[in-house]
Amino acid sequence: MLDVRALRKVYEGHGRHVEAVRDLTFSLDAGELVCVVGPSGCGKTTLLKCVAGLLEPTSGEVVLRGQRVTGPPPGTAVVFQEYGRSLFPWMRVRDNVELPLRQKKHVTKARRRELVEHALHAVGLDDTAGAYPWQLSGGMQQRVAIARAVAYEPEVLLMDEPFAAVDAQTRADLEDLVRRLWQELGVTVLFITHDIDEAVYLGERVVVLSSSPTVVQEQLTVDLPARRDHLHTRADPRFTQLRTRVYEEIQAAKRGGGVGGAVAPPQPLDKMP
C-alpha cells in the first residue's frame, strides 16, 4: 500500500548541509495503523512531509499504491501538530471541514454537507459547525482538523505529532478517537509521535527511528488486543513490556547501537523505568 524505500533527505542552503534522514525503508499494508516513534530531531516531520508529497526526497522514493509520490497524492489527508495554524481562522468550522471536499469535482453539494455533518459528529463536535476555530479549545480545534481529514474520505491518513500540544486528558480522548475512527473507516494510518506510550497504545506496529543520521532502528508488532482503553491497556503487562522494549531501542538509538544485535552495548537495566 505505502512503501518508503531508501528515503534520504538532505537540506542544503546557507552554507549548511543537514542530513535530516539518511536511509529509511519500511512499508504499510492497507488498513494498517503504524506509529513512527523516534528521539527528537530525528527527522520525523521530514519523513511525513516526504510521504505527504510536500517535500521532495534527496534520494530514495515513496510509493503509494504502486505510484511514486511526486506531489501531494489524492486520497491522502494530513493532520498537523499546529492545529491553530492548520485551520483557517477566516472560515467557520463547517467551511474549514468542507474546503478540501470542494476540490473534489464529483462530490455534490448535498453530499458535501452530509460528509461534513457526519465527520463533525464522528469527532463529537455536532454543535460547533457555525463557530470559528479560534473560539474553540485546543483539543476541539484538533478534533476539527481530524474531522476535516475524515470528511475527505482518505485512503491514507498521515498524522504528525497531532497531540503534542494538547493536555494529557484531552490527549487520551483523542488517542481513543483515532483508534475508533481507524477501526470504523478502515483507513491506513501513519502516526508520527515522540511519545513511546502513545506509539504503543495506538499502533498495530511501531517503527522506531534512530537518532540523526536517521535509519529504521527496529520494527515491533504490537500484539495487544484490538479493543484498547486507557485504564486496562496501560495496566496490561504486555503493554509495559512493549513500551520498555521501545524505550530500550530509543536509548540504544541515541547511543548509536541496537538492542539484542551482535553489536549491542551493555544495557543499564537498573535505569529502566
Binding site: A52, G71, Q103
Partner: peptide, 22 residues
C-alpha cells in the same frame, strides 16, 4: 503561514483555490 499553505497543498488545492482560500 507555511502550515496553512502545506495544509492547502496536501488537500490538493490548486493554485487558484490557494489564492482564493489561503
Amino acid at each position: 503561514d507555511p502550515v496553512a499553505e502545506e495544509t492547502a497543498r496536501s488537500y490538493g488545492l490548486g493554485t487558484w483555490a490557494r489564492i482564493r482560500h489561503v
